[in-house]
Design a protein around this nucleic acid. Structure first.
Lengths: 351, 351
DNA sequence: CTTGGCACTCGGCCGGCGAGAGTGCTAATG
DNA sequence: CATTAGCACTCTCGCCGGCCGAGTGCCAAG
């Protein structure tokens, strides 16, 4: 008895029971009792025995009873153990993978923005939960083109084209008016200087260029460098695209309107969610936060499954799924995993 | 008696009572009874008399009783009458208007997109309901600049700058490769042709240009016209920006999670809402849909208050507020009205 | 260690009850 | 004849008690 309870050393029978319990609970969202468990655990055990085991599991903090005479429910710790050691992931079928790939390779319009948002929609659509994808960090994206267009009164529009066809517009404030031809020159000069280089590289190079504003540079070149400085100083703020929030309203664990409101507020505020997602870029593969583990109380009843995605072998962002703690991890995990890979591939494909 | 009931001819007393009832109900969301009404209608009437009047109003379909022994509640027809003939709008104070104006004139970054979304946030923030602003139609916006940037493999990036600093990017598919200088030429040619002209004007002109592809045009010019054709054929799809949906979750008339879900689905689908908003561009000033009047059953419990906004004396979009039928119309109406004017002004200000 | 048996404990589901709020009707009043 | 007071009636809501079913904990037997 004392031996069995010795931390984390769980005999096979208990583990199978826990597994059965979690699976059952995930399936029908109700506390599961000893009778049910003794039936479909696969083991030949009477309800009474199951009760004893349950009692042990409860003492270990793996399951909990909502009230005296309800069945048991997994705790966060229980889910954790389940996911880490008991879960058998269901790999996606070839067909499913192909469908995902097709949907992401929209063919015609190659537009990173829209690929990102289809990814988000796909995640939410397949899982019936909320999908989220952070916009890729562009530190390592190569620059294809830099162009300036004159606007009125000391404003210049800078257009930045990356090699993956992402286009960014920024408006600069400059001291004097520049003629179109001047801007043209500047644009040519900078494009030749930066084309094919990564953003981080460019920033560094620019720093050097700015410091030694040599006399052999003509006025236009100096202006060009200065404007470039403004363009690239703009550290872009992080952001994410979310889809399928409404799906979360169907779960009865979130039927409390007030809880729901707080959750949705967190989604629109974005700050906390971004923080959380940021933690996942460093992680190697799929990462899972169960309930309170995330550290944000609005997510107490939710789990978050994430995976980083890569462009050119650099991790540039994270995608994932947000849903109730009680989610089909065996399906969700591979979905998130595969989608991350496919998104990376899709964003790479026209290098 | 018969005389009193004669359609729509409501004696002064009944009207004041109806007014009091609606105001009271808007204020505290509960059916209001004869006792309360006789107290704060301002008239010296006993509850019994009030009851008689209520009975008449009910027969006319202006109020309804949720059940036998509850007070009365305004019907849609009742609200309509209230708004059309009884409501005394509360004009905004000078300070409030100034605050709105300041918030919209973000000074620094003049960016239509961000102005639109602050407008939406302001609407939702002040009213504690959901704010919505359609993106401006650009039919009459003047074009300031048109630029082409070569991308890989038969793709050209077209950049379209409007006089209000709105920038749009479109990717074109072209048959052959164009050299940067060719594109430069094309861009110059088209800019000179179109700069300062409205989009509709440009479209028309382009049609003529396309039809008579004369021999005196060189190859580059022909290509330019062709590409321009592609740029301007893209009829941009309509869209809107919404803010403060979460606010709607606090209203107890929308506390049913399922109703709420349908409402939010309509918000993300956008189609129906866009349809509804479209109907308001033609309207002259503030327009109000009460409950079922909108024709969309998800909005049955909601009212929508809208006003079109103008740039350069052309109506280009609509903004408004969505909330429960029971909203403080006397405040919301002027807010929507003023915001529409201010948004127009803000988008105009740097012609 | 496992199991069957048994008492016990909860939550959920009526059905009844009383209070409160508000109505409709009628008869009295100015 | 409109207004009012009075009164019976209706309906909601919250509360209590009882009952059922599900499930537990414990104990004693296998």
């Amino acid at each position: 008895m004392a031996a069995k309870r010795s931390n984390l050393t769980l005999d096979d029978r208990s583990r199978r029971l826990l597994k059965a319990l979690v699976e059952r609970f995930i399936h029908d969202a109700q506390p599961v009792g000893s009778r049910t468990l003794s039936r479909d655990s696969g083991l030949e055990l009477s309800p009474a025995t199951v009760r004893n085991v349950m009692s042990d599991l409860e003492e270990m903090g793996l399951v909990a009873a909502p009230h005296t005479s309800a069945g048991r429910v997994p705790t966060v710790k229980g889910y954790r153990l389940f996911i880490d050691t008991l879960l058998k992931v269901q790999p996606l079928s070839r067909v499913e993978v192909e469908q995902l790939r097709e949907n992401l390779q929209t063919g015609e319009e190659f537009n990173p923005q829209s690929i990102i948002s289809t990814a988000s929609s796909l995640l939410s659509g397949i899982t019936n939960m909320a999908g989220v994808v952070t916009l890729p960090r562009r530190d390592h994206s190569e620059i294809r083109h830099l162009e300036f267009v004159p606007l009125s009164e000391g404003r210049v529009l800078a257009i930045l084209v990356f090699s993956d066809h992402e286009v960014q517009n920024r408006i600069l404030h400059v001291e004097r008016e520049y003629s179109p031809s001047e801007l043209q020159q500047a644009s040519n000069y900078l494009s030749s200087l930066f084309a094919g280089r990564g953003l981080m590289d460019v920033r560094q190079r620019l720093l050097g260029e700015l410091s030694r504003t040599r006399e052999d540079m003509n006025e236009t070149m100096r202006a060009a460098v200065e404007m470039a400085g403004k363009v690239f100083s703009n550290s872009e703020e992080e952001d994410y695209v979310m889809a399928g929030q409404v799906n979360l309203m169907s779960f009865k664990e979130l039927s409390d309107v007030d809880k729901l409101r707080q959750l949705f507020e967190a989604f629109t505020t974005k700050r906390d969610i971004l923080h959380l997602l940021d933690q996942c870029v460093s992680a190697d593969g799929v990462q899972i936060f169960i309930g309170e583990e995330s550290g944000y109380k609005v997510l107490d009843e939710c789990s978050v499954v994430t995976a980083p995605y890569e462009i050119d072998d650099h991790v540039v962002g994270v995608l994932g799924v947000i849903g109730p703690t009680r989610m089909a991890y065996d399906r969700v995990i591979p979905i998130v995993d595969v989608t991350a890979r496919l998104l990376g591939a899709a964003l790479n494909s026209r290098e």
